[in-house]
Design a protein around this nucleic acid. Structure first.
Lengths: 190, 190
DNA sequence: TTGATTTTACTTATTAGTAAGTACATTTAC
DNA sequence: GTAAATGTACTTACTAATAAGTAAAATCAA
């Protein structure tokens, strides 16, 4: 596969995470790569193509990470923490989450992008639901809500945590991050 | 004050909440109002003026609501619930939170808008912090985190709850909404 | 009739997108 | 083994649409 194509997706993703889907243009990408705007259209005829490719690439990266953690026999706690650490990295880089970024612009996205986005969120939620469920059985987690609801809460805290941290202060994300871990840490019996 | 001016702000806010700051144009506003693009520029010479006015109007509405609740002697529980009900309404109307919307586009906003946004988030967080603190003293709330951290969590859950609900399903917001109330409801002593 | 409001008629810049052509490497035909 | 054809990765040079923004004239309302 083409290296230029990969770089376009990479830069496109970075721009979605920093400026939002409607906040960047093909020119922004071509300028960074030192090529012409038309060269970007050569790989991605329309912005819709680029948008879906960005989401698909992201979703694929997620699946690879999950597969990798499974094959390394990560327990549920470590899997969740690894996932959450992706957000710590985003916070350091002043980026937000792809889901939160596109969640803002969802009404301006064409159907194919919208569907890809929904698919990815569904996938992450159900992955986390299973993870929480299994982890609780093992006593690694403790919570009272249905596992899917707990997953929704964790994802929401991560997504808006990054957004709030970019408005306020990076340290505010760390606060939220810590609180998530505390929320599901098993409490000693009294 | 001009009725047209007020309508422009109202429609502008609606557009920010549905399509994002970079997803709408003056043309979108003027078309709805049946006036010309230039008439919008008469009231708001630049989009920056409009953006700051939208935030200021929103912040003012918040202050009025707080004042009103105080004068009606709402207890802390009812004040928090009233605030949260604003988000229930947004969810019904498939709108997201102003803070979440602008949080995505923050890097593309000019300084005055950015500052207004930061001011508003600071204000809401510190209002909720005080509310939680006082409510806990009265036994209306129960939580273990520092009040500001708890406020950050609640705001984050509300903001991303709306975003996720727009991608997934409206009912997912209600789930998160309920979980917030449960999170701070005093537990009976054992 | 004065000032507030709005339209007309622009400008300039940027957007996504396209059509035609170029350079160069690879394959195919003889 | 060489020449012709083909494919890849672009550039050049556009278009059509839309963006924000402006100046000046027209309209309206007190």
């Amino acid at each position: 596969m083409s290296i230029t194509r990969e770089k376009i997706i990479e830069i496109g993703e970075e721009l979605v995470l920093t400026k939002g889907y409607n906040g960047f243009s093909y020119q922004d990408i071509s300028t960074v790569l030192g090529i012409k705007n038309a060269a970007v259209h050569y790989y991605f005829p329309s912005k819709e193509n680029l948008g879906t490719s960005i989401i698909k690439t992201n979703a694929q990266r997620f699946e690879e990470m999950v597969d990798n953690m499974e094959s390394l026999n990560f327990d549920e706690w470590n899997q969740l923490e690894s996932f959450m650490k992706l957000y710590l990295k985003s916070n350091r880089e002043s980026k937000i989450c792809l889901l939160g970024s596109l969640g803002t612009d969802v009404n301006t996205l064409s159907d194919p992008i919208h569907q890809e986005l929904t698919k990815m969120v569904d996938r992450i939620i159900s992955w986390m639901e299973t993870l929480l469920q299994n982890g609780m059985k093992k006593g690694l987690f403790q919570f009272t809500l249905p596992a899917r609801d707990q997953a929704l809460r964790i994802l929401a805290l991560l997504i808006a945590g990054l957004q709030l941290a970019r408005i306020l202060n990076k340290s505010d994300f760390k606060t939220i991050y810590q609180s998530i871990l505390e929320e599901i840490t098993p409490k000693p019996q009294s």
